[in-house]
């Protein structure tokens, strides 16, 4: 029985790793292009979604965690959201990425520009206080959720072997 599972899932896992590599490539391209960083957020979130599927340890963080987040970027009118829930099909908790704002969020983060948004997901230590004080970032909702989210998202650059974006402190 177990062997059967493995045979079914091994290709799935390989496919996920491949997908992660593709995302990495995409990310590097966005970074190399410089300037306009929109798209990076979505890619990073998709990467986080994959990492959570692959990494059992990290997945433990989203057990019984039904949180909803929206990220809105004012220049470029970007919105992307994530929600966590338990997947009946996979019988494990998963993260979903949506290309739009969602309601009933625990917290909504509004960024002034794509650069701040990119830093938020890709920097070594996203500094939300500095963001607020520089008028580049606004939070609406339960701050504790964003703390947890930063903990999760900090794994993305590490896991993908991408140099974090440095944050102009």
């Amino acid at each position: 029985m177990r062997r059967l599972f493995r045979r079914i899932f091994r290709p799935v896992r390989t496919a996920r790793e491949q997908l992660l590599k593709d995302l990495r490539q995409e990310m590097l391209e966005i970074l190399a292009r410089g300037g306009n960083l929109d798209g990076l957020m979505t890619v990073a979130l998709k990467a986080l979604r994959l990492i959570l599927l692959i990494d059992r340890d990290l997945r433990r963080n989203i057990r019984d965690f039904n949180a909803r987040y929206s990220f809105i970027c004012l220049d470029g009118n970007l919105a992307v959201s994530v929600s966590f829930k338990r997947s009946r099909f996979l019988r494990q908790p998963v993260m979903e990425v949506h290309d739009e704002a969602i309601d009933n969020t625990n917290i909504t983060v509004t960024f002034a520009d794509t650069r701040t948004m990119a830093e938020f997901v890709m920097s070594e230590s996203p500094d939300i206080f500095a963001g607020i004080l520089d008028n580049k970032l606004a939070l609406d909702g339960n701050l504790n959720y964003i703390l947890k989210f930063i903990y999760l998202v900090r794994h993305v650059p590490k896991r993908m072997g991408i140099e974090p974006i440095s944050c102009p402190a």
Partner: peptide, 28 residues
């Protein structure tokens, strides 16, 4: 930490009066 997500003091206040709490979160 997960147990406190909804229970920290700031969050208790925000639940009651998010508008006022938002002033604190402006930080300045």
């Amino acid at each position: 930490f997960p147990w406190w997500l909804e229970r920290t003091i700031s969050e208790q206040v925000r639940k009651k009066d998010s508008e006022s709490q938002a002033l604190v979160e402006k930080m300045i």
